[in-house]
């Protein structure tokens, strides 16, 4: 591979949109004279993830970050838009051709107590992708599982145990070993540490970094925790009510936020260093995603909002640090 390819996009997402039909059953709709109701979890989301980097998506509840993760790994079908993996269109409906592509990406889930089948032994859990893809046979599988357990900091003796014999952090290690077993290039990590205690979170985050260095992995990290995202990511996308409001280089996002929502999120992070920075309470709450505000969805909470923000949905525009979808991008410095 040439250098150019090495840094090219591994995953490319274009105009990704997902609507959920949340209508009442047909009979109720007829009787109550109601139409169908839709919830737009994601609207027109576009971004790309480069090889070897960690791209993070942050957002609060209702921002649709997990929906994006699920669409990328094929757990949900997009209502519109395209996902390309290494230049190839991901079309989960077609089936046959996806097998080769599927082996190249994996997912780590939020809740290590739900992501491991309680009736399976660790050996079978970790080997599931190997068996499904038919990568190895018989004793080779056992050897590979032992090796993977060692890689994530567990011992080969753990292979015979059941998940309930492990703590939350150890379970997440098992889940990581499973994700690594098909030798993927890309791993979607959906809130991988939000169910864990901080001391264990540090172990898992460090492990994820080590694995990235060792195997040249590319991560999509989904999180609501800005501190975790800052620690892990190269580039960050900020989601608000299903739309990408800002994408920026990680280090710079925290210094020069371009979108007022990003700025607001940063101000809300508790000040652990006791630097005297006062956490600023934010105005209002996240609106109901079934009935989002017109124009820019953030306008009712935004200190910079003007008439145009209620009338027109802002398109992403280039900023010094990346891009932001705001009519007044770049003016957040003037926020009080």
């Amino acid at each position: 591979m040439t250098d150019l390819q090495m840094t090219g996009p591994l995953v490319q997402v274009d105009g990704l949109t997902r609507r959920f039909d949340i209508s009442k059953p047909w009979l109720n709709r007829v009787l109550e004279r109601e139409g169908k109701q839709f919830l737009t979890a994601n609207a027109d989301v576009s971004f790309q993830i480069n090889k070897g980097e960690t791209f993070a998506l942050v957002g609060e509840s209702g921002s649709g970050k997990s929906t994006i993760a699920k669409m990328i790994v094929g757990l949900l079908a997009p209502s519109a838009g395209h996902i390309r993996f290494d230049g190839e269109e991901m079309d989960f409906a077609s089936g046959a051709d996806m097998r080769a592509l599927r082996r190249r990406f994996q997912m780590i889930f939020q809740d290590p107590f739900a992501s491991l089948n309680p009736r399976w032994r660790v050996r079978d859990i970790v080997a599931e992708p190997i068996v499904t893809f038919g990568l190895l046979k018989g004793p080779e599988i056992t050897r590979e599982v032992d090796r993977l357990l060692d890689v994530v900091g567990l011992s080969a003796a753990d292979a015979a145990k059941f998940p309930h014999e492990f703590s939350g952090g150890q379970r997440q290690r098992i889940a990581i070993a499973r994700a690594l077993s098909s030798k993927p290039e890309f791993i979607v990590c959906d809130e991988p540490t939000s169910a864990l205690d901080v001391s264990v979170q540090a172990q898992i985050l460090n492990l994820m970094r080590d694995l990235q260095d060792e195997f040249g992995l590319t991560y999509l990290l989904i999180s609501h925790d800005l501190s975790v995202v800052r620690h892990m990511a190269n580039r960050i996308g900020v989601l608000y009510l299903g739309r990408l409001v800002e994408v920026a280089d990680a280090k710079r996002l925290f210094v020069e936020p371009q979108h007022p929502y990003t700025r607001m999120l940063l101000d809300a992070v508790p000040d652990l260093a006791l630097s005297g920075r006062r956490r600023k309470p934010v105005l209002g709450e996240i609106p109901n995603p079934i009935d989002p505000p017109s124009g820019c969805a953030f306008n009712p909470r935004c200190p910079l909002a003007q008439d145009i923000c209620k009338a027109q949905t802002p398109m992403p525009r280039a900023t010094p640090t990346g891009e932001a979808a705001c009519h007044f991008a770049g003016q957040v410095g003037e926020m009080a």
């Binding site: 094929g74 599927r102 997912m107 889930f109 809740d111 089948n117 992708p129």
Partner: peptide, 10 residues
């Protein structure tokens, strides 16, 4: 999530 994990690998 364990079912989702199985679905991810197809």
């Amino acid at each position: 999530e364990y079912v989702q994990a199985a679905r991810v690998v197809g």
